[in-house]
Amino acid sequence: MTAALTLDGLAVDFSGFRAVDGVSMAVEQGELRVLLGANGAGKTTLMDLISGKTRATEGKVLVQGRDVTGLREHRIARAGVGRKFQIPSVFSGLTVRQNLEVAQSKRPSVWSNLRFALGMSEKARLAEVLELIGLGAEAEREAGLLSHGQTQWLELGMLMIQDASVILLDEPTAGMTQGETAKTAEIINRLKGRHTLLVVEHDMAFVRDIAERITVLHLGRVLAEGSVAFIENHPEVKAAYLGKQGIA
């Protein structure tokens, strides 16, 4: 079976500075992969390269075996890549329900959207996602009025309903309380299997909750890859990122 997401020698050169320097990795169908790395290791840049925000100068990105390198952002999104940014980004003037409706639309062109009603299956799926992210009671509220945690969940819900095969999450628990983090872990665990996830995260407790395999980046290169236990005891990872004392 082809991997859901394959990176092959991916690199970008910002006039001499190589933020990502020949990264190769394969994320299997339904896998949740965590990206670890110190500040400047190239985690966010790697996500920019996959989602098309930044163009790679070398290497390839394959989504479900299809080469999407160099396509424009909305084309890559249609190829099945969903992305959540570090700063939550939802449509603040629309209601929670409308946010999900926009994310749900299968047909992207203007003409095909000059219509009103949702189909029965679409309505059912929307209700299901509302429950999954725990915002059923907030469906008719304007998204701009949600709390920080709720906003993050709504954005996760939008990725769910978008039905992206590969989901990129950039620090999904940044700025969250412990309770909110726990709920986020729960939502992300439900995404596993149905979607393939690539998650950037610093909170090690959270990483232990969700991760199966971890890839550690250092100075734009892959330093190590393996299970949580393997990474936590990896001497080079300890030296480069976690400090000599190991993980807190």
Binding site: S51, E73, H74, R75, A77, R78, G82, R83, F85, S89, V90, F91, S92, G93, L94, Q98, N99, E101, V102, A103, S105, P108, S109, V110, N113, L114, R115, F116, M158, Q162
Partner: peptide, 30 residues
């Protein structure tokens, strides 16, 4: 027209064109 899905998507591009772009919409077309 603004009550259609296209109208909702247009308002979405107003609130965050990046988000709309990453949902696969050709924002300039809207």
């Amino acid at each position: 027209l603004v009550a259609t899905r296209a109208g909702t998507i247009l308002q979405a591009t107003r609130d965050s064109d990046t988000r709309a772009l990453y949902l696969g919409y050709d924002v300039p077309a809207y």
